[in-house]
Each structure stands twice: as structure tokens, then as C-alpha cells.
Nucleic acid binder design. Sequence first.
RNA 1: GCUCCCUUCGUCUAGCGGUCCAGGACGCCGCCCUCUCAAGGCGGAAACACGAGUUCGAUUCUCGUAGGGAGCGCCA
Length: 470
Amino acid sequence: MTIRTRFAPSPTGYLHVGGARTALFSWLQARANGGVFILRIEDTDLERSTPESVQAILEGMEWLGLDYDEGPFYQSERFERYAEVVEKLLAEGKAYRCYCSKGRIERLRERQMAEGVKPRYDGHCREGSEPQPGVKPVVRFRNPREGGVVFDDLVRGRITISNDELDDLVIARPDGSPTYNFTVVVDDIDMGVTQVIRGDDHINNTPRQINIYQALGATPPEFAHVPMILGDDGARLSKRHGAVSVLQYREDGYLPQALLNYLVRLGWSHGDREVFSLFEMIELFDIRDVNRKASAFNTEKLDWLNQQYLKTLPPAEVARQLAWHFEQAGIDPENGPPLTDLVSVQADRVKTLREMLVQSRVFYESLDEFDAGAAKKHLRPVAETPLRAIGERLAGLAKWEPQRLDEAVRITVEELELGMGKIAQPLRVALTGTAVSPSIDKTLWLVGRERSLERIRRALEYVLVRAANP
RNA sequence: GCUCCCUUCGUCUAGCGGUCCAGGACGCCGCCCUCUCAAGGCGGAAACACGAGUUCGAUUCUCGUAGGGAGCGCCA
């Protein structure tokens, strides 16, 4: 039988990393088995669902490369279908109308809490009740009173719960709109879902859903409840943890490959391996190998992985993603070295594309002033001779390429009988305005011939002015 | 309160009764390399929550305890 999995977010916010990992696991499980991956938007809550959230989810999925074979389906477009199934259950006596007021339910709940028992509907209308004038009824599912539900969770193992822990849940509101536990079941049946992979906050919903499957004469799918993701501090993920939206990670300069790799290793592993290409994940992933424990998100490890990908992905691929950041920042890549050259130099010096951008502006924009500390330390009168010498030598170079540039610097060092630092540092400040940059030959290369010569001239002027005004 | 679930280094994890005075990765510390910052190389500190069983033998199996999480909606 073909494996069919789905990701079913509710559009009440952005796609956060927890949801993204659940989506990834579902996607992998489908891809690993030649199955089908479905996207379904659970927007039955008209109040809280927004088109912006739908958009954010679709965009997040796209950025990560989690493509779906069917959908997106919208529950808001399936109300007729749900109403039809509600009628069927009503006709078969598997559901009933309940005229209890919200007030009565609340009082019942308070009393039960006070008595120390689990609050649940007492079945007041279960055996038939008079329609109350002016009260529009809800529809409740007639949950079995006897026995229990047992299911073998693909990650948790066997889970057992007694039916008397469950009550008759509402499946349709007074206005006829359906509720979550009911719509998921109808949809998963209609869409032929064979494996439900979702967050473990749904474990407790599963038994009641299984009862609905049975009432509907359907065989329940397999379930896999994956643990949640915690923030860096071990607390539940929330806004205060900074980046939680997947798209925020794009903003911050992470590669989708790195985020995916990081996410797959949260709760899943394959021996001692840390780095997995998408292809390898598909080869090796099995939902059954996922851990049961919630895991904390660790940005430092993500940073490390991101750099691994910056270093090993083809520079053209990294450059393509870097271009997006240039565009966001309003910097024209045409004003400096080709992005692939930039990437080849900067990849092992930064953790993120954003950092790469920040540290590379000087190759694309004008240099307005020197960092005060760096200038004070390196653009002193003693720097005049080396700057003048290297400037002259560079001006005479036939080819502006790293090896020639490196030679030029070394020869100058030898001729002046100075340490490398005595010439590289002033030159670095001259070229970039700061004391930190790639190796001096690569820095010269990226800054380019005209810009380099011009900046050396300006640094010399600065040194002379400073010498004259100590 | 009730029900369900979870528990190996700071973090992510390996381990599926002896191979474990517990392995890898991130981070941290030290050394090396070095024109700055990185990257890289080498080395180091760092964990089986606790208590009973079962067993010749438990990190691995069972049961408790403690701690943590989730659910108990006319939210999803």
C-alpha cells in the first residue's frame, strides 16, 4: 500500500521550527517510501485563521523545499462534507444533539474539579433530551462507555486509555461548524492518509479520534507522535526565544539545507553522523527511529552546521542565496567582485549569510572612514614606508589575482625587512577600514585593483596628516 | 486534581544484558598553525535522576519515587 502522510497546520501564525520539523518528518516518511505527501490547512477556526498565516506557511514550506504532492486543501472549503458526515452519525445514532447551556457545562466542570475528578461532559443529553426553545444545540459524538482504546504509536510504542476517561465531545457547534477532532478524522479518511505524523500534544486526542474512525466504519491510520522542540533554555518555544519563525531563519542568514539538517537531527540520528544531504536523509530516515524525548533547540550547533554548508555547498549555490540578502539590503553585487569569489573567500569565516553580507559591504560600497581604534593602532607614521612601497608594487602588477598579490606582499616584506604584520595590518586598515578581514592577498583581490590603489593613497594621506598633527 | 507521556555529558545524541571506569557532535578550556579574524590540527574537562527488584551480570528489562511535559474547550 502506498504510504500517504500529511502536514496539517492551522494558519494562526507563522510556520515555526517545531511545525517545520513535523512537516519535515512527514515529508521524509513519504519520500523515503515512495509515498505521497499532502498539505492541508486546518482553518476551521474562522476567528483566528488569517490569509497572512497561510501565506507564511506556504512560503516557509517553499523556502525549505518541502514540496507536496496533493493540496493545499482548506478545511474551510469542506464544511458541506463535514455537515454530511455529522448527519450520517446523527441518523445512525452515533451522535446526538445536546441542549445543555454553556453555563451548565461550566458549573459541571467546576464541581468535578473540586471533587478531584477529571472534568468531562456527564452525558446529560445522551439518552435523548427535549429541544429547548431558543437554544441551538451542539452535536456530540456518542463515545463508547465500555472498554478502551489501544494503539501502537510508531514512536511511542503501545498507548492504552480507558473509554471512561473520555467523554462525548462536541463535533459540531450551534452554527453547524465542525470541530477539530472531528474534521481531522473525516479528512484523513477522505484523503486516504495512512500515517499521521504530528506533535505529541495530540497524543491525548488520538483515542477519541480512533473512536470516531470506528464509528465511521474506517480503519484508523498509523500514528506517530513526535516530541516538541524546546527553546535554548529548555522552556517551551515562544516568541521571546528570538527566531522561531522559519522565515526568520532565512532573514538571519541560514541556509535551508542547514536548517533542515539541524532539524532532522533533533530527535533523530544515524550513528555518529551529523551531516546529511536531503538525499541521504531520504535514504536513511525512518519515523520509527525518532526519539521520544523533547529536545532543546541549540542555535550554536545550527551555526556550526550552517557554516559547514557554507563551506561545502557549491559556491554558485551559496552565491544564489547570498544574492537574496544583497537584494534585501539594497546592495548591488555588480559594484564588486563576483559573489562566487566572495563566497569562496568568506565561507569559512562566517556563520551566516547575513554575517557574510555585513563583513563584505566594504567590497561593494565606498569606504567612508577608518575604524578609530584600528587607525590609531596601525595607521601611524611608521606605516608610511610600507604603504608607499606596497602601493607602488601593486600598481605595477600585470595580473590582479591572489597568487600575484601574495607574492607582491611577501616581496615587499622581504625588501623592507619587516614582519608580515607590519605591512599587512596597515594595508588591511587602508583597504577595509578595520583590523579584521580575510588574508591580505584575498582582501586585495576582493577589493579590486582600482579601489585598492585608491584606498592605499587615501590611507597614506591620512598617515601624513596625522604625522603633521600629532 | 485526574489521565497520558518523558528522563545518558551544559545541548543534540550513540547504546537495543556483558564489547561501557559509557562513544560521537556542538559549545567550553589548553596547545599548535598564523598578516588580523576565522578555519584547520592535536589534547582536555564534562553524563547513565534516585530506589527497589529480575539476572551470574544492568545504562540497557520490571516496578516504585522524584523531576519534567502534554491533555482534560462549542482552539487546533
